[in-house]
Amino acid sequence: MNGIGEFQTILLVEDNPDDEELTLLAFKNNHIANSIIVVHDGAEALDFMFRRKAYANRDVRTTPRLVLLDLKLPKLSGFDVLQELRNNDMTRFLPVVILTTSNQDEDIINSYKFGANSFIRKPVEFSKFNEAIKALGMYWLVLNEVPLSTKPSLIKG
């Protein structure tokens, strides 16, 4: 772990309050200590990422290490958000995991086409959901390496 561990933020883009709460519970349940920031639509997600509007003054160190992105979102869809992130040099290599209820081939294909790193269908069963969140945290926050340029400390505001 590097020295800025407490700022290993996860951005959860989720409009359904139940899903939001369950995801947070699952993280807590699996002892994933990272701070999780929740935004509720696509536009808010982009504002947060690029420090605009309500997030203009956010601490640069809270720039997330991982984005969990739902596809069905108000205002801007998950695909719109993904494309914006991939078009920006700052976020080009940021790990984005699609976490959604859809399992349509078309959605999976488009997700990868637009540069998602992973596609996970939210399991209905409690235990499987718990396991999925655990595995996700383990993989993307512990095992996965990202280039330095995407590390929060190096992103200039």
């Binding site: 359904n16 139940d18 899903d19 369950l22 519970l25 209820t101 939210k122 209905v124 069963e125 409690f126 235990s127 959901f129 718990n130």
Partner: peptide, 11 residues
Amino acid sequence: APLRAIEGFFG
């Protein structure tokens, strides 16, 4: 979605 919520919270 509601089914998942039921299952999750029930868990």
